[in-house]
Design a protein around this nucleic acid. Sequence first.
RNA 1: GGUCCCGUGGUGUAGUGGCCUAACAUGCGGCCCUGUCAAGGCCGAGAUCGCGGGUUCGAAUCCCGUCGGGACCGCCA
Length: 588
Amino acid sequence: MQKTHTCGELRSSDEGCTVTLAGWVNRRRDHGGVTFVDLRDHTGLVQVVFNPDNSPEAHQDAVPLRIEWVIQVQGVVRKRPAGMENKNLPTGEIEIDVQELVVLNPAKTPPFPINKEEEVDEQTRLRYRYMDLRHERMAKNLVLRHKIVKFIRDYLDQQGFMEIETPILFKTTPEGARDYLVPSRVHPGEFYALPQSPQQLKQLLMVAGMERYFQIARCFRDEDQRGDRQPEFTQLDLEMSFVEREDIMTLTEDLFTNLVKEIVPDKRLLASPWPRLTYQEAMDRFGKDNPDLRFGMELGNISDLAGESGFKVFESVVANGGEVRGLNARGLGDYSRKQIDELVEYVSQFGAKGLAYLAITEEGERRSSFAKFLPPETLQTVIERFEAQAGDLLLFVADQPEIVFESLGRLRVNLADRLELRDPDVLAFSWIIDFPFVVWNEDEKRWDPSHHLFTSPMPEDVSLLDSDPGNARGQQYDMVVNDYEVGGGSIRIHDRNLQEKVFELIGLNPEVAAERFGHMLEAFEFGTPPHGGIAPGIDRLCMVLAGEPNIREVIAFPKNQAARDVMADAPSPVEPKQLRELNLRVVD
RNA sequence: GGUCCCGUGGUGUAGUGGCCUAACAUGCGGCCCUGUCAAGGCCGAGAUCGCGGGUUCGAAUCCCGUCGGGACCGCCA
């Protein structure tokens, strides 16, 4: 080895040791007579000293050193002179008196500073990702990610789980997201697909009797990007046999509760055990099925008052089957008309046509877009329902339920940011349960699975699949933390007849079902145990635990928003020869 | 497919119609300096203001187009 120690590990207890260190020049301070270099590796920094009194040769050799050069030094660990300690460094009690310096590799001036955290254009960061990853922040994130994955593996191993790899080249499933297709050279005109998740394969492992399976699984979806979505991402894919919903939730909750305590002890769990909300409750109280529970500001419903409110907007919406719901933004009662207009513009992108408001200033003065139309007793009921006081701002959306929930759910989070109600050190995990089994797809005029097509309905709701599918609930559970859905799972169907019934319900005709999922249906006839599982997203979880604003910060080599790798420049055109071999031709 | 925001030395910013022959910090090069740790001091180099067109006596600045990036909507079983 070219080093005996890492840069970050030396302490005053190592005083007197002769050590060899290797790393990057983080910073250099040349005082003419004596030169200091902060030597960096991924474990941290240590100060190395080139003193001509100690080694004239090494001091001379250090003259040309520049930032990011890779060097090796041999020297003795010394306590720093009294008063010269650096309390900002874990290694600040000591320094290395260098005897010998070897330049392992010089370096060009980096494209952006490595030794300080500065917001650099993300394209430049991605183009030189190997340099970006030298930043302390990024190194920390990758270490955190490693620890999280290792904890998961160790924990599940102790619980009797086995990690099993499943194929990356698999079969297309056009029901879900768009597939990445891989042409087959030996089968012209035929394609593999990269898995959107190992869903089918893990269920087949249950058929195989594996009983407790997991995998840190790469998944691929050819959809447009977001701050929390990449075309390839990693999930903890987990499946168990002979279990009910409760078993999966208990195990998952225990896993992640222990993980947080062990890996991010500075973060506080808001509630343990995790709160459980039904889908309906989550929507009624928070307007979304991935609610941030770190703050209140719950939604309230005044649809019952709106019908005879005297306010035409409310009345006509309710008459047309819509709803009027609102929330109380405590502390924004002094918002100006302009600031309220900003909020209106914000909710407009979710389809809301406006916001009805009632603001009460700190002095108790009321301003409102609708109060004047309301009978005094009705207005009083509204005020009481939202416990409105001086300094409060009530905001209402009147529209079809989906728009009301979407607008207010987003507005609630937006307002919480303005009021700084979202404590970054708190983790509010929760479970959302009792999802509708299917949702009506108005465009296609059919029922779509609300989770995926292998999810089992609640046993007591199976009869509803024929009579009233919209009211059937699925055995599905979502794991939510701080406004992010970080995992979804379900108890699966293990009965061929029920699976076929579900295919029929969602409008998959039997021939297509047989072609795409025949292997699943067949497997169900060979003694499939009751089973279920969950798939928490590793990237999102790392992002939340690292306190990062987007998923790219916890992925070593992410794609940009256009799904492009700007470092390697992928995707890229290929040689005509490759296309010929694959029997492909590019049109257009 | 759509909406919004951003492109100024290597990096981060300022400049929003003439005072710009483009400023500041940092980085880069050179010189000085034996205890700094964002070391310090002095000197120097470095930008056709993303690109193309237009308006104007005059454009980094206004307009149109285009390219690149980001946030979001659609999409994400």
